[in-house]
Amino acid sequence: MTRILILRPEPAAGRTAAKAAALGLDAQVHPLFAPQPVDWTPPPPDAFDALLLTSANGVRMAGAGLRQYHALPAYAVGEATARALRGAGFADVVAGVGDGSAIVRQIAADGHGRLLHLAGTTVAPMEAGPLRISRIPVYSMASLPPDPTLLAAAVPGSVLLIHSPRAGARLAAQMPQAQRATLHLIAISTAALATCGTGWLSATAPALPRDDEMLALARRLCE
């Protein structure tokens, strides 16, 4: 059976592994990063029309300050982040179906103008359009030490899943060129794919930047 190596941080890695197992795939988790909270000062809620979270880690790491924004319409880049917001007490949550730029367009279409974005210290580029976005980091992704078990687990024919440009760059720095030639790579976006370097047995990204789309590509590689 082809092995799927999931390199995203926990707890998202565990969710991806569970979905992979449900598809009958042999999945292993080898995170390259771990989220850590960042001290922040919550601005007044009445300064904004809406709240945006682009990662479930932002919900988890924002702490008690997040509760101040329960009255604002909340937007999430995807369903996993939306579930985290609902679990944190937000009743009015809209889940996007694309990337950050897509959910920002939705927010503008809904008539909002002043947006609070609680995010990580590194954020994928997004088009602000007419919105005035105030972005506040509430967490960072700390690099974990190189894991020798990742290289050992990456046996020929394995499929590696990359969920961010930063993870792609980190993987490229750790995976020897000779070993890449035996491995398949699936990145969540073309931007993430571009950071992974060259020399892979195959390298691709789904049409939509979704975990399920990545797993569908992985499943086809395993057939």
Results as ranks from 00 to 15, higher is better:
61 M>V: 06
48 F>P: 05
215 L>A: 07
30 H>W: 09
30 H>Q: 06
23 L>C: 14
38 V>L: 12
155 V>T: 15
137 P>C: 09
92 D>Y: 04
207 A>K: 03
134 S>E: 14
154 A>M: 12
66 L>T: 09
16 T>P: 13
13 A>V: 14
2 T>L: 04
65 G>D: 12
193 L>N: 09
72 L>S: 09
93 V>M: 06
97 V>I: 10
44 P>R: 13
46 D>M: 04
72 L>N: 02
150 L>E: 06
122 T>F: 09
132 R>W: 05
91 A>M: 05
185 L>N: 02
78 G>A: 00
192 A>H: 02
200 W>N: 12
158 S>W: 10
95 A>V: 09
199 G>P: 03
205 A>H: 08
115 L>P: 01
20 A>V: 07
30 H>K: 14
77 V>G: 02
196 C>N: 04
122 T>Q: 14
146 P>N: 01
87 G>R: 10
111 G>S: 01
103 I>F: 09
36 Q>K: 13
218 A>H: 02
184 H>D: 15
17 A>N: 02
149 T>Y: 00
142 A>D: 02
32 L>C: 05
86 R>Y: 05
41 T>K: 12
184 H>K: 12
104 V>T: 14
86 R>P: 01
78 G>T: 04
186 I>N: 03
46 D>C: 02
30 H>I: 04
97 V>K: 13
152 A>Q: 15
19 K>V: 05
121 T>S: 11
182 T>K: 12
136 I>M: 08
68 Q>L: 11
68 Q>P: 00
106 Q>S: 13
43 P>W: 11
152 A>N: 02
214 M>N: 07
221 L>N: 05
137 P>V: 03
67 R>T: 06
144 L>W: 08
201 L>C: 08
165 P>M: 11
206 P>A: 00
88 A>V: 06
156 P>Y: 03
172 A>Y: 10
131 L>A: 07
88 A>L: 07
54 T>L: 07
220 R>N: 08
187 A>K: 09
159 V>K: 02
57 N>S: 12
139 Y>D: 01
60 R>H: 06
25 L>T: 11
111 G>F: 08
218 A>N: 01
80 A>P: 02
66 L>V: 08
190 T>N: 13
105 R>C: 03
12 A>G: 15
21 A>W: 06
209 P>H: 11
4 I>V: 15
107 I>W: 02
109 A>K: 05
33 F>E: 12
162 I>N: 11
